[in-house]
Every structure is written in structure tokens, then in C-alpha cells.
């Protein structure tokens, strides 16, 4: 179907081309006759068929020269220049990319070393603080222990001194009481008895208090 259609339209096309060709082929002769009869000034100068061959010939010459020059020399030159430029730009871009990644690596390394230094410093500081703290704790513990011991010893001495003093006081009180009793009443009381009495009185006083 498709092929036969193509075939039929090909036939039509050829007929049309022949018809157009015949019409145009007849025309220049007519045109030429007309211009040779008419004065050249009348009508469009563009339709003066006598100038057609020269125009066509020189157009062909022009076209061929330009085509030869452009296709062999000018266009390859221009495309080379443009390609060179693009290559150059590409190269520069690649170099820039390389430099950028290098700079990034350098920055990363720098940041890493900075981080390391920071952790090291923190650790050192921490260690020093710990050391100082333990030392201070130990010293203060020692001091406390020593003072505690001293205090205990002191307290013991104090208690002892107090009891001694109390005993002495009781003794003195008993002696004074017995001497007073000797002088006033004239009896010689047993010193031991006096002591017990003083103690008893002291005990009641302490209770009352």
C-alpha cells in the first residue's frame, strides 16, 4: 500500500516537474523576444532575460570561490580557534578544580590537627586538675586526721585535768571541812568520811543542776 502510494506520487511528481520545466523552458525565449522588441527602459530591469546568462555565470563564479575559500580555509580556522578556546577554558577549569580539592584537603588536615591539639590540651588540663585535686584532698585529709588526733589527745588531757581538778577540789573541800570541824567542834573526823560526804553533796548539786 505504502510503496504503491509512493510510486503513484512519484509519477505525479515527475509529470509536474516536466510541466514546470516545459513552461519555464519556453519562457526565456519569449522573454528574450519581448526584450529585443521593447525598449530596455520599460518594465522591470530584473526581467530583462538578456542579462540572465551573465548574472548566472558570475553568481556561479562567486559561489564557487566563496565555497572553496570558506570550506578549505576560513571555517576550519574559525572552528580551530573556538575549539582551542574551549579546550583552554576546560583545562583552566580542571586546574581550578584540582587546586580547590587540594585546598580543601589542606584545610581538612589543618582542622584535624587543630582538633588533635584541642583534645590533647583538654586532656592535659584535665590530668593536671585531677592531680592537683587528689593532692589537695590527700593533704587536707592528712591535716584533718592530724588535727582530729590532736583534738582527741587534747580532749583527753582536758578531761583528765578536769577530773584531777575536781578530785583536788574535793580533797581540799574535805580537808577544809575536817579542819573546820576540828577547829569549831573539836572533833577529828575521819578524812575518808569527809571525802564521801563532799562527793555526796557534789552529786546532789550536780543532780539539782
Amino acid at each position: 500500500m505504502k510503496n504503491s502510494l509512493s510510486f503513484i506520487s512519484a509519477g505525479f511528481f515527475c509529470q509536474a516537474v516536466f510541466a514546470v520545466n516545459a513552461a519555464f523552458g519556453a519562457d526565456p525565449a519569449h522573454g528574450g523576444d519581448a526584450s529585443s522588441h521593447e525598449a530596455p527602459s520599460s518594465g522591470l530591469p530584473q526581467l530583462d532575460a538578456s542579462t540572465f546568462p551573465s548574472q548566472l555565470f558570475w553568481l556561479l563564479v562567486t559561489f564557487v570561490i566563496l565555497y572553496a575559500v570558506f570550506s578549505k580555509k576560513s571555517l576550519p580556522e574559525i572552528s580551530n580557534v573556538i575549539e582551542n578556546r574551549q579546550d583552554h577554558i576546560q583545562n583552566e577549569l580542571e586546574t581550578a578544580d584540582g587546586l580547590k580539592s587540594e585546598a580543601e584537603a589542606a584545610q581538612q588536615a589543618y582542622e584535624e590537627s587543630l582538633d588533635n591539639a584541642r583534645t590533647l590540651a583538654t586532656k592535659a588540663l584535665h590530668d593536671a586538675q585531677n592531680k592537683i585535686k587528689t593532692k589537695a584532698e590527700k593533704q587536707s585529709n592528712d591535716f584533718r586526721e592530724k588535727t582530729d588526733k590532736d583534738m582527741q589527745a587534747l580532749e583527753k588531757r582536758l578531761v583528765k585535768a578536769k577530773t584531777d581538778a575536781m578530785d583536788d577540789m574535793n580533797m581540799i573541800a574535805a580537808e577544809i571541812a575536817s579542819e573546820a570541824a576540828q577547829k569549831i567542834v573539836g572533833i577529828n573526823p575521819d578524812i575518808e568520811q569527809a571525802k564521801t560526804a563532799v562527793k555526796a553533796i557534789n552529786g546532789t548539786k550536780a543532780k539539782a543542776a
Binding site: T51, S54, Q55, W58, L59, T62, V69, S74
Partner: peptide, 30 residues
Amino acid sequence: IDLSFTNSSLWMMIGVIVSTGFISVAMNRK
């Protein structure tokens, strides 16, 4: 056949010279 060099042909040739001349001068430095 009349293939005379006419004013039309003259300007075609001028066009050839101007265009090729301009391009070669412009691309001279590359």
C-alpha cells in the same frame, strides 16, 4: 552567450573580496 562582466558581477566580486578579506583579517591573530 553574453557573459559580460557587469555592475552586478562587480559587486559580487566586491562581496567576495570584502567577506574573505574581513574574515582573514579578523582571524589573523587567532
